[in-house]
Simulated assay, not measured.
Amino acid sequence: MVDADIAERFVPYSPAHLLSLALILAAVLLLLAFRRPLSRRRPAAGRYALAGLLAACEVLLNVWYFSSGVFRPSSTLPFELCSISLYLSVLMLLLRSRLLFQIVYFTAIGGALQALATPVLGYAFPHFRFIEFFAAHGLLLLAALYMVWVEGFRPTLRSVFVAWGALNAIAAVVFLVNRLTGANYMFLARKPPSSSLLDVLGPYPWYILSLEAVALLLFLLLYLPFARSERRAKAVAAARSVPSS
């Protein structure tokens, strides 16, 4: 939803967009650099801080929706993939849930990267919506990576298909919400008006099937850095299970 009287609208890969991406990358690199000190010194504090920041983004966004009079069931309910991933991320961080990590690692990173690369956003910097958009998506990346780099969680090949199945279950619910509200959450009803990956995936509804394949491929790519360590761990476990003669 975009206010009709906004003087300046978001321009992809403008200086403000590129600076926001650079700041998020810097935050990710800082987390990587300080992962060991964080893992030794009360890692729960970092999880709670990230959960609080993610929750604050969502609360402030909804306050703005209502205070600005732009709340619409057809466009501002939390049924986009990144919004759903945000709620799951908060629970994952608070509960230190390995089950939720197996889903969030893929949906949060995959969804946030797509959103940051091709934002569906009508507001330019320094509008609150611009700042909240990039802050929330940057925090989604940090939350998933925190569980990997600081808490030592690892995705598995099985979790690729768990996350893909969860994504399809979420899409089924969102499809029903779209039918009831006339919305286009997760772009399951039509393509977004701005340029996006969907432009090269065919017309509606065939691009949804293409998205299925793209999502699975992306999840496999996100798992790839951990494939060797998982195979090694399985080999060690198998060797230990063999009784000595």
Rank of each mutant, 00 (worst) to 15 (best):
G110N: 04
R154I: 03
N184C: 08
V236Q: 14
R232E: 15
V59M: 05
P155E: 04
G165Q: 07
L61P: 04
Q114W: 03
A26I: 13
G110Q: 01
L91F: 12
G110F: 02
R9K: 14
R179G: 14
A115L: 07
L139I: 08
Y105C: 00
V174H: 00
L19F: 10
T181D: 05
G122L: 05
L224A: 12
A55Y: 01
L197N: 06
A213H: 05
L140E: 02
W64F: 10
L54R: 02
A115W: 02
L32C: 13
G202F: 08
F79K: 00
F134G: 04
T76S: 15
G52S: 03
L167S: 11
G122P: 07
Y13T: 04
S14K: 11
M1C: 11
R40V: 07
R232K: 13
N168K: 00
F219I: 03
F10I: 06
R42N: 15
F34K: 11
F71T: 03
L218S: 11
S194H: 13
Y185D: 01
L222N: 02
Y48P: 02
L18N: 09
L211F: 12
L201N: 07
E80Q: 14
V242Q: 12
V28S: 03
L31S: 05
G138T: 04
L209K: 06
N168Q: 09
